[in-house]
Design a protein around this nucleic acid. Structure first.
Length: 722
DNA sequence: TTCCTACGATTTTTT
DNA sequence: ATCGTAGGAA
């Protein structure tokens, strides 16, 4: 057993202060690269080692499975404890666990399944169809956003305000959707949190149980919590427990999905936090990089206030490159990457960051031509792939035949002659008897209805599968399902189906691995759902990681969002242009620009040694040429921290691209930046949102608020800066 | 039932 | 440009 001294060794004063705080609620403002995870894990280790609590007496909450895993890994390297059974995980994972343990009180079947986003959307479409809602007027995606938004605010349909016909209809859809989920015995992601919150609120003895148990609650990335998550924490934190919240308001980049930075100040107020511990010493980057990051973020208002510093030297200047178009930009990046490689920097320690995924294509193209191995993060995760979801849907039906979402996914896949009419009859039957589609199907088959051969086959198949399941392992179940369902044969016959066949095999492997890993995991009988259900949960809650992990020897390409929490020797940020970064869409949103700036702050602070910023005078976007100017964020970096790799815009001629004429001087083409406030004779005051057209025929899109969004020819509009 | 075409949208993303 | 979806034709 290591001594306390060992545990605390090497911490700086602030870190030490944070780690050894007494049993009070505290807010740790942890800047980028300030050792946040270390503080969090050391705090846990210290609490346990000094016997202030046991591994069972605390709860640690994170946003991603990756963060949870890393925390536990580090913890076991500090203390020889078994972390299995510890309440450390994501909000969703922990809520799921509570709901499983108290499924009766929560009003859920013991085998309830979790809908991922795609499942949820199809469930909503289904409800809307039953309700005969015009999906032109109410796009299902929008309805989903509405429903999730409400749930994340902690509101059920009956508690939501509806002002007009439109919102009343949405509320109706919400109510009907919840009803359908209840009947199917399924819960979407937001439902896990809301139902758990309601459970704790409604059942005093359950609430008391957990409040007594979790005397210490630790929360990571607190700035990303939404309202419901905060309410949930508040409920669990109770009156006597301590919540140790770690976060960084400057790195809040998820407001668009409901994160409320305001939770940080609410927390201070509600939990009477006296001291905020600020971790400002950065162990990652040289000071030029940090100074640039500080200079950028200073332009935001309403910050809790924090300034990163380092004892490392100034380091290299920030390199800025102005490309004349996107091809030039990616070529520049390729050249520099080659140089870095020659200098001995491993490819996996170099990252190409961009604001939007669309930017990766051209980079990939250049990298491919230059034979540089790269890895792009993002896209579909393993458990989200169609073939995997199909196989899982069969398993879901075995676990809970009332799961209509699962049934609809595979009732006719692989094709077995159940077409639209047959399905409609089935749904009608289900509606009349107010039962699940499966029950309707068995009824129909039981009655010996004619003309439903396909249906008969399907019901027989599922029943057969259920029979087969008894007494075999999870891996064997997976194997049995992909074979009996015909999925495997279907993809084997498809000449494009090679990858899919592999993924199905991989699913069997995953199932086998899961049951092995799970063998040692049966401590707690009360929350011991059967293995199949656990595996399905695992598939929904951990669809696989989007974020980079142990890099193979490949260049790392990802969005800035995906780069949060990571660091690299060298970082390229591409497309640092007005309209792209900050993104033009952000100009519409309240506080959108500040979030973009925080995003830039996150991007900049990923670099240890070297940082490149590049922008292009023109770029292909949505099949059209767009002209851009350098992002305001570049202007916000003091000149003396930067080095222009090519001379400044003015009268530059481009030797590399003789066939192109450079765009006009940015000065004359773009009198206004995106986001600039303007006044118009007729429409009043507005904000420049984007540019359209080419340099000789330039139009601006201006958001005039009440007067709406207008596209104006710059030449005639007579706009005035305000 | 399957395949093709036309249309629309297209910031960021975890669970 | 390009991708996914929805709806119609073979």
């Amino acid at each position: 057993m290591q001594s306390e001294i060992d545990l605390l060794q090497g911490l700086n004063d602030k870190q030490l202060q944070a780690v050894t705080l007494p049993h009070i609620s505290a807010l740790i403002l942890a800047g980028a690269g300030s050792g946040k995870t270390r503080v969090l894990t050391t705090r846990i280790a210290w609490l346990i080692q000094t016997s202030q609590t046991s591994p069972m007496g605390l709860m640690a909450v994170t946003f991603t499975n990756k963060a949870a895993k890393e925390m536990l890994t580090r913890l076991t390297s500090m203390l020889p404890i078994n972390t299995r059974g510890m309440w450390a995980g994501t909000f969703h994972g922990l809520c799921n666990r509570m709901l499983r343990a108290h499924y009766r009180e929560a009003g859920l079947p013991s085998t309830f399944q979790i809908l991922d986003t795609a499942d949820q959307l199809s469930a909503i479409k289904r409800v809307m169809k039953v309700m005969n809602v015009d999906d032109e007027k109410y796009p299902p995606k929008q309805a989903m956003g509405y429903i999730n938004g409400c749930k994340e605010e902690g509101l059920r349909a009956d508690a939501v305000d509806a002002y007009d016909g439109h919102s009343q209809k949405l509320r109706e859809i919400y109510a009907a959707y919840d009803q359908q989920c209840n009947r199917d015995g399924v819960a979407d992601f937001a439902e896990l949190l809301l139902r758990c919150y309601e459970l704790l609120q409604r059942e005093p003895h359950i609430r008391a149980h957990y409040q007594q148990r979790f005397q210490y609650i630790l929360v990571d990335e607190f700035q990303d919590t939404n309202r419901l998550q905060y309410l949930w924490l508040k409920l669990l934190g109770g009156a006597h427990n301590s919540i140790f919240a770690v976060g960084d308001d400057d790195q809040s980049i998820y407001a668009f999905r409901g994160a409320r930075v305001g939770n940080m100040s609410d927390f201070q107020r509600d939990f009477k936090v006296e001291n905020i511990v600020k971790l400002e010493e950065n162990y990652r980057s040289h000071s030029n990089i940090l100074d640039a990051a500080n200079a950028i973020i200073t332009n935001n208002t309403n910050r809790l206030g924090k300034n990163l510093w380092t004892s490392a030297g100034k380091g290299e200047p920030i390199r800025i490159y102005e490309a004349y178009n996107d091809t030039d930009e990616s070529q520049f990046i390729v050249d520099e990457v080659n140089m870095l490689q020659n200098e001995g920097v491993p490819l996996s320690d170099i990252a190409l960051l961009y604001r939007s995924n669309a930017q990766s294509r051209i980079l990939e193209h250049s990298l491919f031509s230059a034979n540089i191995p790269y890895r792009v993060y993002g896209g579909l995760r393993f458990f989200e792939r169609a073939e995997v979801k199909h196989a899982l849907a069969y398993i879901r039906l075995i676990a809970n035949a009332n799961d209509d979402t699962a049934l609809l996914r595979i009732i006719n896949f692989p094709p077995r002659g159940i077409g639209a009419r047959g399905l409609e009859q089935l749904q009608e039957g289900a509606r009349q008897n107010d039962c699940s589609l499966w029950q309707a199907a068995t009824n129909k088959v039981g009655e010996g209805m004619l003309g439903s051969k396909g249906l008969e086959g399907f019901v027989g198949l599922i029943r057969h599968m259920i029979d087969q399941t008894y007494g075999i392992t999870l891996g064997e179940v997976a194997e049995m399902v992909i074979n009996l369902s015909g999925l495997m044969a279907h993809y084997q016959n498809d000449k494009e189906g090679e990858d899919r066949v592999e993924n199905l095999q991989e699913l069997v492997t995953a199932a086998v691995a899961f049951s092995k890993q799970d063998l040692g995991n049966h401590h707690n009988m009360e929350e011991d759902a059967d293995l199949m259900t656990q595996f399905l949960n695992h598939a929904s809650l951990e669809a696989g990681d989007h974020q980079a992990d142990v890099g193979h020897e490949a260049l790392q390409l990802m969005t800035v969002h995906a780069a949060k929490g990571l660091e690299f020797h060298s970082v390229f940020i591409g497309g640092v242009e007005e309209g792209l970064f900050p993104h033009e869409q952000a100009a519409y949103e309240n506080g959108g620009l500040e979030e973009e700036r925080r995003l830039m702050y996150v991007a900049v602070t990923r670099a240890r040694q070297r940082l490149y910023l590049s922008y292009a005078q023109s770029r292909m976007l949505h099949g059209q040429v767009r002209y851009g100017i350098a992002s305001r964020f570049i202007d916000e970096i003091p000149e003396d921290l930067t080095k222009r790799l090519n001379s400044k815009p003015a009268a530059k001629t481009y030797a590399t691209g003789g066939q192109y004429t450079p765009a006009k001087s940015t000065q004359s083409s773009y009198p206004f930046k995106i986001g600039q406030g303007v006044r118009h004779g007729k429409f009043g005051e507005g904000v420049i949102v984007s540019y359209e057209g080419n340099a000789s025929d330039l139009a601006v899109k201006v958001n005039f608020g009440s007067a709406g969004l207008k596209t104006l020819m710059l030449e005639y509009a007579k706009l005035e800066k305000i």
